[in-house]
């Protein structure tokens, strides 16, 4: 609508609103509404960030004060001792490493596969294209259930392996639809002219489709990476017997549960020895907070870059097969 108005008209319109609009006094109801509205959103927003802030100030304050419960709203006697102490917890860093590697590898393979599949299913001349496309997409709408899935993974020898994190996630029907929809919006002429020049499908994919679909690939990469970083179930179910392969979320879960009955751990010596020895020096809650912070920080770091992909990511829910 606005584009249709000429510049002059727009200026006049603005002038009109300046002169007349501002003179319209907000009614009493308006004021009340605005106050309530602003207050609600302010409180809700605070509730979303305050926990992170609270955890953070507890990890950078003097542990003794934290133990006494003296830290509520502002940090006191800043220190990084808690983070330094975490350096000794080997299995934590092992999990950080495992999670980083899986996030990187898993996302890279998923993005590559989704883009290739998304490109291929746009090619009408493929042998039984429609059938294969449906074959992939249908998997979004049913699953055999947790136990058959687990038994299948065991049958394939993927339990207690690192590969169990990567391989099952490579084919992602949602993302294939997303890429396909995007590629369909690229003008076909570009591709056709390359085809005329004798380029193979692979060359077209690599030299034309791949660069042109970068925005959507970035979107699925971001969401895929967050998914990998947050993954917990596969570690819990498939790699339960391989502590060296636990993901960070799984490790955090264990620490949260162990530390909540810390006395038992310290006395019996069971569970993670690292958590036990540390607990003697640091308060339970500081251990939990610091590990939580280690887990959150990467997400908060990429978060600002993610925001511009939100709208595209929303297509996730809105697109159709």
């Amino acid at each position: 609508m606005e584009a249709k108005l000429s510049l002059k008209e727009q200026k006049e319109e603005k002038k009109y609103f300046k002169e007349h609009g501002s003179k319209v006094k907000p009614t009493f109801g308006d004021i009340v509404f605005n106050i309530i509205n602003y207050a609600f959103f302010a409180i809700f927003t605070l509730s979303c960030i305050f926990p992170f802030y609270y955890i953070f100030i507890n990890t950078i304050s003097n542990p003794e004060l934290v133990t006494k419960g003296a830290i509520t709203l502002i940090p006191k006697e800043l220190t990084i001792a808690n983070y330094v102490a975490m350096g000794k917890v080997n299995d934590l860093w092992r999990s950080v490493f495992v999670t980083f590697v899986r996030t990187f590898l898993g996302t890279a393979l998923m993005v590559f596969t989704s883009s290739l599949a998304g490109y291929l299913v746009t090619k009408k001349e493929m042998w039984h294209r429609q059938f294969w496309y449906r074959f992939l997409i249908i998997t979004m709408y049913f699953n055999a259930g947790l136990i058959p899935w687990y038994l299948n993974m065991a049958m394939l020898g993927l339990t207690d392996t690192f590969a169990a994190y990567i391989i099952p996630g490579i084919v992602s029907p949602y993302n294939i639809i997303l890429v396909k929809t995007y590629i369909e919006s690229i003008p076909g002429e570009i591709e056709e002219s390359a085809y005329m020049d004798g380029a193979s499908y692979w060359t077209i994919f690599r030299k034309i489709i791949w660069p042109l679909s970068k925005p959507i690939l970035a979107t699925i990469a971001i969401f895929g990476a967050v998914g990998h970083w947050n993954s917990f179930q596969d570690s819990l179910i498939l790699n339960a017997n391989s502590p060296q392969l636990y993901t960070l979320q799984h490790r955090l879960y264990i620490y949260l549960n162990q530390s909540s009955n810390l006395g038992a751990i310290v006395n019996s010596g069971a569970g993670s020895a690292d958590a036990g020895t540390l607990a003697n020096q640091l308060n339970t809650k500081i251990i939990q907070y610091t590990i939580s912070m280690v887990t959150i920080i990467p997400i908060l770091c990429v978060y600002p870059f993610m925001q511009r992909y939100f709208e595209k990511g929303l297509m996730l829910g809105a697109v159709k097969g």
């Binding site: 979320q249 955090l252 939580s292």
Partner: peptide
Amino acid sequence: TTIPNFISWVLVYAIAIA
């Protein structure tokens, strides 16, 4: 308000504990 969507449930639980 979008941040909580991107953290895992384990972290939500960590927050609940905190």
